[in-house]
Structures are given as C-alpha cells and as structure tokens.
C-alpha cells in the first residue's frame, strides 16, 4: 500500500521459501520479516503507525548523507 501512495517507495513481497539464498542473506528465521533499505529490520506484523515510523526513520527528514544540508 505504501508504494501506491509514494513515488519514493519500492515495495517487494518476497516468497522466500523459493529462494534459499535470499533467506540466508537476510537471515530469515521467522516470517513475516521486513527489511527496509538493507538497514532496518523487524520480524512480525507491526501496526500501521509503527511501520510508517520505521520507513520515515530511514527515508524521511532532511538529507543526512554528505554533511549538512546548507553545506552545498
């Protein structure tokens, strides 16, 4: 649903039992497991607010990479 609402979002549902190398790479022992930008991960379903907050913590707010925003 998030990818329907935002052009910034790519959302994949991955049926991991078909792809053991993916399960291994992301250390998947329980499903559902969510991985956001290879950095933030959690297992189990989360309420909408918590899920959105997780996405925002990774992709929201001012740009952090490359120093301060006014540096350019």
């Amino acid at each position: 649903m998030m990818a329907v609402e935002s052009d910034k979002v790519t959302a994949d549902v991955v049926e991991v039992s078909e792809f053991p190398h993916i399960a291994q790479r992301y250390r998947i022992y329980a499903v559902p497991k969510v991985v956001i930008d290879e950095t933030l991960e959690f297992e189990g379903a989360r309420p909408e607010e918590a899920f959105i907050a997780a996405v925002e913590s990774v992709a929201g707010g001012p740009v952090e990479e490359g120093g301060s925003p006014q540096g350019e």
């Binding site: 910034k8 790519t10 991955v14 991991v16 497991k33 969510v34 909408e48 959105i52 707010g61 740009v63």
Partner: peptide
C-alpha cells in the same frame, strides 16, 4: 490509486526525502 492507509500515514509517505526499498519476506 488509493489505499486504506490513514491520512497521517499518507502525508508522511508523501514527504519522504529519499527513495526507500521495503522488502517483506513471507512464506506460503
């Protein structure tokens, strides 16, 4: 082109600063 997400969620998503890749791993 619409979802059942709450208005606040849609607002936050609309303001994301960077592209983000969400992967949800499941089994049948």
């Amino acid at each position: 082109g619409t979802t059942k997400l709450q208005p606040l969620s849609r607002e936050i998503l609309g303001k994301l600063a960077r592209p983000v890749h969400i992967q949800v791993f499941v089994t049948p």
